Simulated scan of single mutants.
Amino acid sequence: MEQLDLPLAEWIVLALMAERPSHGFAIAALTAEGAEIGEFWYISRPMVYRSITRLVERGLITAVGSEEGNRGPQRMIYAATRSAKSTVTRWLSEPVTELFDVRAELTCKLLLLQRRATSPARLVER
């Protein structure tokens, strides 16, 4: 798969989907203000769902099932494709080259690596 040019929000959603199949509501809960990811990079619920739509359109994630919502409609569960998982792994090891991106992108990469129980040594070294 070629190098992707995705906004940071889409990278984060894709990386979370690469961890395990999930639905948009669960991803939005992780990226909400004050939540684990949202504490560093807040992604609104509408942006999460927009990112999911774009990732599906690009063939990076695919619907793998659904589950009943507590109070609403069924929630569609998505999973990252095999090639998307490899792409996320490469992205997580790529250095952040722009000083402007250090706070957001580097912090998010470090947090996502921690969630994977993966050492950040390669990223920091590069």
Rank of each mutant, 00 (worst) to 15 (best):
W91V: 06
L14P: 02
Q74P: 14
P95T: 00
C108M: 11
S93F: 03
E36K: 12
L60F: 07
R54T: 12
R103I: 09
R126I: 01
K109R: 07
D5Q: 10
E39S: 13
F100D: 04
R54H: 15
V64A: 12
P73Q: 14
W91S: 03
F40L: 12
L111Q: 03
R75M: 11
G69C: 10
W11N: 05
A117T: 07
C108W: 01
F100I: 02
E33Y: 12
L4G: 04
I37V: 15
T81I: 06
M17S: 13
L60R: 08
A18V: 02
L99Q: 07
W11Y: 04
T118F: 11
A63E: 12
L30A: 11
R50Y: 12
T107N: 09
G69E: 07
E2C: 09
E36D: 11
V48D: 05
L55Q: 05
V56N: 05
I43A: 01
I12D: 04
P7D: 12
E98Y: 04
S22Q: 14
M17R: 04
A9L: 05
H23L: 00
A29I: 02
L110D: 03
A26E: 08
G24H: 04
R45Y: 13
I43M: 05
I27C: 02
Q3A: 14
Y78E: 06
D5V: 11
A35L: 09
A35W: 01
D101P: 01
T89D: 15
F40M: 08
L111E: 03
E2R: 15
A32F: 05
S66I: 08
F25G: 12
G65C: 10
R50F: 13
L14C: 03
